[in-house]
Amino acid sequence: MRIRDALGGLALFGLGVLCATSAILPRVAFALDAKTLDKNATPLEAFRFGFNAYKQGDKTVAVEALTYAAEKGHAGAQWKLGRMYAEGDGLAKDDVKAFEMFSEVADAHADDNPNGSSARFVSNAFVALGLYYRDGIPNSTVKPDFNRSRQMFAYAASYFGDSDAQLNLARMYYEGQGGERDPKQAVRWAKLAANKGNVGAQALLGHMLFEGEGVSREPVLGLMFLTVARDRSDADDPWIQDMQEQAFSLATETERRTALALADDWLNKNGKPNP
């Protein structure tokens, strides 16, 4: 498998022995009767059934159906259960179990078609693993490991073209986490993500362009990207507003006017992200 070739094997995921999905979650096949889901349902049918139940607010049924599909190796079901564990959404919050579910996805589906239906689940699982390796999980065997974190992001960024992975990889290169600091590589990956409309990447790229780090200094273009990112960000991203305000205070009046006009033009053409 590609993940084993590129990242050095299953042991990379750091679990020692990965728990099988059936060991992580209670077996629920007995509950899949005529009132819920046919016992002969395919993994895809079970996933769709569970996801619809989730959207309708019936998270108990959702967990049952998703677990059924996950035990049969459905990447989307494994991913969704991982998200539910990570967020404490319909299941007790448990980052270790979330980590295990994302590891199941990454190990079994790393070679999936990057343009296929499962790609978004698999790439996001790699991103989630990258974040867990970056920060660690308190009171667990999952310790901060910048090298593995960078590898997770690099795989999702390159093979799946995931913009969140590209942003996180750019930040690790920029900050020198998991290896030497490399602003040029940070610019490269930030550009790829920014071109896909990733807000954080637009802010990082704008900052590097304004400061001339890893790229020739272009204060107008940098302030434009920072302004676009500020206007597209939400309250959870105060660092974006801080960087935009700092650049704005240092720019000349001409640079400000030009950058703001370019930002307005970009926003009029592309709009803000969907809520």
Rank of each mutant, 00 (worst) to 15 (best):
A86W: 02
A34V: 02
M152A: 10
P183D: 07
E180S: 12
D162P: 02
D107F: 10
A157F: 11
A62S: 15
D112C: 07
V105L: 06
G116R: 02
T227V: 00
A190P: 01
F13S: 06
N198G: 00
V127K: 04
V61W: 00
M208C: 07
V127A: 06
F121K: 00
G73N: 14
W266I: 05
A251E: 15
F248G: 03
M1V: 07
A108S: 12
A70R: 06
L37C: 08
P138F: 09
K80Q: 15
Y85P: 02
V105R: 02
L260V: 04
N168H: 13
D164P: 01
D236H: 13
K143L: 13
P219D: 06
G116N: 03
G178K: 05
K59I: 15
W79N: 10
K196C: 01
R217S: 06
T67G: 14
A62K: 02
A194C: 09
F99P: 00
K80E: 12
F210L: 04
Q185V: 00
V122R: 02
S118R: 05
R120V: 13
I240L: 12
N113A: 15
G76Y: 02
Q56V: 03
V220M: 06
D182R: 05
L66M: 13
A190C: 04
G214K: 05
I24K: 00
P275D: 11
S140V: 11
M172L: 14
G116P: 06
N115P: 00
Y155W: 07
A108N: 12
A154F: 03
A11E: 14
A31P: 05
S118C: 07
A20L: 14
D234C: 01
S249V: 03
P144Y: 09
